[in-house]
């Protein structure tokens, strides 16, 4: 049964990858990356069951943490154009005006 899970996760990841490449805006791509990361966590867990190596679940847990922090870091970077504190950061709309 884990073959079914791994196969459907693979199909899902390929479809999400199309949206990631074709996404018209930045936020479509960020959403696709987030979904792709969730699918990767499940893929690592399911393949751990498939190959009977449950230690893969530790890797899946770490990947979930990294995925969340990465999404927030991308969003913060594109909102403020920096990841740390910078003195001359204005809001995006003020820059556009």
């Amino acid at each position: 049964m884990f073959e079914v899970a791994v196969l459907s996760l693979f199909i899902t990841m390929v479809l999400v990858l199309f949206r990631l490449i074709a996404g018209p805006t930045l936020y479509d791509r960020v959403l696709a990356v987030n979904t792709f990361g969730t699918c990767t966590v499940l893929f690592i867990g399911a393949s751990g069951f498939l190959f009977e190596r449950p230690e893969f679940l530790d890797i899946a847990l770490i990947y979930a943490l990294i995925n969340f922090v990465g999404t927030l870091a991308i969003l913060k970077f594109f909102r403020y154009r920096a990841l740390g504190d910078q003195p001359n950061i204005k809001d995006n709309r003020e820059n556009a005006q």
Binding site: M1, V4, A5, S8, L9, I11, L15, T35, C39
Partner: peptide, 21 residues
């Protein structure tokens, strides 16, 4: 597991096919 796989493919189809963000 099988219904979760079906939901995954439904969600991926929606991500491909829906018109806006």
């Amino acid at each position: 597991i099988v219904s979760g796989s079906i939901f995954l493919i439904i969600g991926a189809t929606g991500i491909i096919r829906f018109p806006d963000f």
